[in-house]
């Protein structure tokens, strides 16, 4: 504790020297954690029902391999996110499919999360960053393919705490909250993500990390050929 108190002013001083873009970049780097594998729980809440998935996750922080463990009828579905490219394997389909770029903005497993929320860096790629009263205010770059008019990224000690998406008419439409950051091998990983659809009350998605093992992930996990059999 004492050590932290010693370092905090240094960190803050460093932070104040960073440009808003650098702050965003660092915050995004800290969003995905170190290389790890684990089990995530995804809970999709609607007014009429709640649906829960258990997912096996392999990630090196930049690339992610995701496999559905539960519910049984969807078990075996697997997703591979390699930056620009998104692959999907479905056991009923019996083969791996590369999804078109449009797929990246689509919602994931019927939840409110998109593939982007989970693994992408669209916030950095598509937006220009400014800072107002400690909040990173992102506005779309020219010709960036995003339907949002503005995104606010709220940071706490350099970590993303809340992302608020606005439509182009100034109305907040989505809210992503991140909590329970855990320092792992010098990196950070939020243990909880909560996404609310602000246009539709009662629509909420929770992502929790149930198990985690930090350590290098075999390279084959990021090869589309291994989506079918697992890695």
């Amino acid at each position: 504790m004492k050590g932290m108190l010693f370092y905090l002013p240094v960190l803050l001083a460093l932070a104040s020297a960073q440009t808003p873009l650098e702050k965003l970049r660092i915050a995004l780097d800290r969003l995905r954690g170190p290389a790890h594998q684990g089990v995530y729980e995804l809970q999709v809440e609607r007014l009429e029902f709640v649906r829960t998935y258990r997912l096996r996750v392999y990630t090196d922080g930049k690339r992610t391999h995701l496999r559905v463990l539960e519910p049984g009828n969807e078990a075996g579905q697997a997703f591979l996110f390699l930056g620009e490219d998104l692959y999907l394997y479905d056991p009923r389909l019996g083969r791996t499919l590369r999804l078109p770029p449009a797929g990246r903005g689509e919602r994931f497993l019927g939840s409110d999360l998109t593939f982007q929320d989970l693994m992408g860096r669209d916030l950095e790629e598509f937006f220009q960053v400014a800072e107002t009263q400690g909040i990173l205010v992102l506005t779309p770059k020219p010709a960036a393919p995003t339907p949002y008019g503005k995104v606010e990224v709220h940071l706490k000690e350099g970590l993303i705490e809340r992302i608020l998406y606005y439509d182009q008419r100034g109305q907040a439409v989505r809210e992503l909250r991140l909590a329970g950051y855990q320092g792992l091998n010098g990196a950070y990983l939020p243990r909880e993500m909560e996404l609310r659809d602000l246009k539709r009350p009662g629509h909420r998605t929770l992502l929790r990390i149930a198990e985690i093992q930090v350590g290098a992930v075999p390279e084959r996990c990021f090869n589309p050929l291994y989506l079918e059999r697992g890695c």
């Binding site: 598509f126 779309p140 339907p147």
Partner: peptide, 13 residues
């Protein structure tokens, strides 16, 4: 306002 136009080959806002 911005409209996103997507094809199988690319996307533009």
């Amino acid at each position: 306002e911005r409209l996103v136009v997507e094809t199988g080959q690319g996307a533009l806002g």
